[in-house]
Amino acid sequence: MKALGNLSGIVIPLLIFFIVGYGYVSKVKVYETFLKGARDGLKIVADIVPTLIGLLVAVGMLRASGFFDMLGGFLGPVTEAAGLPAQLMPLLVVKLFSSSAATGLVLDIFRTSGPDSYAGLLTSILMSCTETVFYTMSVYFLAAKVTKTRYTLTGALLATAAGTVASVFLARMMV
């Protein structure tokens, strides 16, 4: 499965080449425009600094208390049979509600197991292929003042489940 990794390696350079090339050919002032976008990007990051502090502290405390180890001891034997390390269970649940809280857990997995371990790869893929179900639904339906959401939740959970299963297979192929 080295091919997957190699192919991944060329995506970013090609994308940068294409965007800058296309911009230049279309007579965009590429450098100045880039600076403006980059400045906006910095503002976005500055906005999420407090969130990250709050959540990393909470997750760090929770792990130091031994709570995750206890949870892993309970769930490990069951979930590992399905290819899901016990570490990922809190992530799977929290991710349905809040993507920033999930980020705290993701970083904890990266720190304890490393981003290139099976758990780390699985987490990376998993987080890339699914979104926060309940948060998205509540915000979007609020905009339309809809209270009866019909089959949205079933469909969303189904897509999330499909993404999770796919992630397990893909991560297995990578290690």
Binding site: G120, G163, L170
Partner: peptide, 23 residues
């Protein structure tokens, strides 16, 4: 967090995204 190849997940992530979206 010190990945030796941070972008290695791009293609797998695209594949997984396509699967969840197709579903």
């Amino acid at each position: 967090y010190g990945s030796s190849d941070p972008t290695a997940i791009i293609v797998p992530a695209i594949v997984a995204t396509l699967i969840s979206t197709l579903t």
